[in-house]
Amino acid sequence: MPPEVDKAKLFLERLLSNPMLQGYTPLQREEQILQLFSTHASQLAPLLKSNEFFPGKSWTTLLPILIQALFELTDRDLWAILEPFLQSDLSLSFLSFLTKQAVPEVQVRAQLIALLKDILQSPEGRRVSTGPLTAIQQGGCFRYIDEIFERKSYIHFEITKVQRLRMSKEEIKGILAVTLLLKSAYVLYISEGMHTYTDRIAGVIQGPFAEKVIRALQKRIPLLPVSIVESAIHANMSFGENRFIEATARLASIFASRYRTFRAGLRVDRGADTPDKSWFNVARKNYKFYGFDIKMLDELYMIAAEMGW
């Protein structure tokens, strides 16, 4: 490892420990730092060129070093949380419901970890994984499943009757988690430079491409039921353009978007509405733009409003 990377890590550690980044997950923090590099390059470059930091290095030489160091630091923090989750906390009990046979969970977990590591190799993969992984890490989306099952309204109907996932809410939470984990897998099959910010709007991928990705992923993680892979990849499609998207895919799409900018422990200013309620209400206005299911948003908004989330 070049000595500059270690030096860059020391500098980045101090940046990452800034109180303004508190409440963010490692990938969100990474995104914040990359944003800072992008907007303040002209100010950072001369300061980092000083003798104390990287004497004589130009910004174009320095930026890849900083990004490499940043990715390494993020991976360290990210996998410290993800590894235990994927190894044990993630419930895969839904597998037996879907396949009606015993599935070697250890192998499935290993395949998921390997796939996720591949996704996180590329900057694009890291960027599009921020929302889904934050949703899992913060865990806020799972409390909505509890409420959905409590209310037995539209979303519950869509999950249990339309998608025919007749299982307990714990199994549904597992399906949602795996759907979120695999949602970004499409980046492994796109050509470079194809996507810019499109993961945040409707119709990221179209049907034929989605089918290609699903087929490829089936080979990559053959132990995982195809319905789960379909749900994960369909979570990148617009509900406005495809009314047959699975309920879990629609939910994952909403939660990945919601948690992209989620910040834990955010103080709600007096006079402001709660974060989830605000977000779902704004999303209701933009549902066509993002390709969300408006009825799901309505229900999630009601839950957030009633629960004070």
Binding site: N18, M20, Q32, Q35, L36, H40, T196, I201
Partner: peptide, 17 residues
């Protein structure tokens, strides 16, 4: 913001400097 317009870091430059 979704189209990448006006995105800025929560890190204030004053704090970084």
């Amino acid at each position: 913001l979704s189209m990448g317009e006006g995105e800025t870091s929560d890190l204030k430059w004053e704090a970084v400097s």
